[in-house]
Simulated assay, not measured.
Amino acid sequence: MTPNVYPLTFLSARRRALQHLALSAAAVVGVSGCGFALRKAPTFAFQSVRIAGSETTPIARELRAALITNGLTVITTATPASTPAEVVLTVTVDQRERIAVGQTAAGQVRELQLRTRFIFRMRTANEKDLIQDTELLLERDLSFSETAVLSKAAEEELLYRDMASDVVQQVVRRMAAVKSL
């Protein structure tokens, strides 16, 4: 009878797994002791919000969906006027800009700058200002090539969607920062 002998590679693999587990546990303990915590879902001081102004833009649609996801009742112009809202979020500017910032000697565009400008304010139903007029301006740079127009158009749209998601997250965080009406 031969005794059970583990190959050396099995033992070293097991040892590496235990070392990895110990390092992971140490990292979790170290991070939890420094005050780090994942961002939690926002809590709001109100239950319903009316969105006024630009309601049909991509950012406004995504903002409406985010607020509904976070448990708020969202009222728009399509909702009957008899439905009261605790606060009114007014979107005054929601625009996209596309500017050529780099050109070749022949005048061909080589670099674009994409901008998303979003200005909003939030008031109670009694016209008390909760958030003054706030402008969010995001910029992204995009190289451009006439030989890859379709792929650059798709990249441009992707960058605009990314900026819209960023604007929505910033607006939701600012709304959640309001602690009393």
Rank of each mutant, 00 (worst) to 15 (best):
F44W: 07
R121D: 05
L72I: 00
Q170N: 10
G53N: 13
T77P: 07
G71E: 10
V88I: 10
D129M: 15
D129N: 08
L150T: 14
R98E: 13
L72E: 00
A37F: 08
F44D: 03
D133E: 13
Q113C: 09
V49D: 11
A154M: 15
M122Q: 05
I75Y: 10
A154D: 12
Y160T: 01
V74W: 05
P80K: 04
A106I: 00
E86D: 12
L89T: 02
A100R: 06
E155I: 13
E86Q: 15
Y160I: 09
A81G: 09
A100C: 10
R115F: 09
V91N: 00
V168I: 04
T147Q: 15
T134G: 06
V74G: 07
A153D: 13
Q95F: 10
R123H: 05
A105R: 14
S48F: 04
R98I: 10
A78L: 12
T104E: 14
A45L: 12
F36V: 07
D141K: 05
K40E: 04
E86V: 07
G35F: 03
Q103I: 05
F36E: 01
I51D: 00
V91K: 03
V149L: 14
L150V: 15
R161G: 08
E139S: 10
T124A: 08
D166E: 12
T104M: 14
V149W: 11
T69N: 11
V88S: 07
K128M: 05
F46W: 10
R61F: 01
G107S: 04
F46H: 14
F118C: 07
V168P: 01
P58A: 05
A52Y: 07
I75V: 11
R173M: 05
S82W: 10
Y160F: 12
G35C: 01
F118D: 03
N126G: 02
S151G: 08
V91T: 08
S82M: 13
R96P: 03
G107Y: 02
E86N: 08
K40L: 09
A148N: 12
I99F: 01
E55T: 09
L38R: 13
V91D: 01
G102M: 01
A52G: 02
R121Y: 05
A60P: 04
Q108R: 14
A100P: 06
R117T: 12
L137S: 04
E135N: 09
A41P: 02
D141F: 00
R61D: 04
A60I: 01
A52I: 01
R39P: 04
G107Q: 05
I51H: 02
V171A: 02
E55C: 15
R115S: 14
K152N: 11
E157F: 11
V168A: 01
V49M: 08
R64F: 03
Q47D: 07
A81L: 11
T124M: 06
P42Y: 03
R117K: 15
R96K: 13
S48W: 04
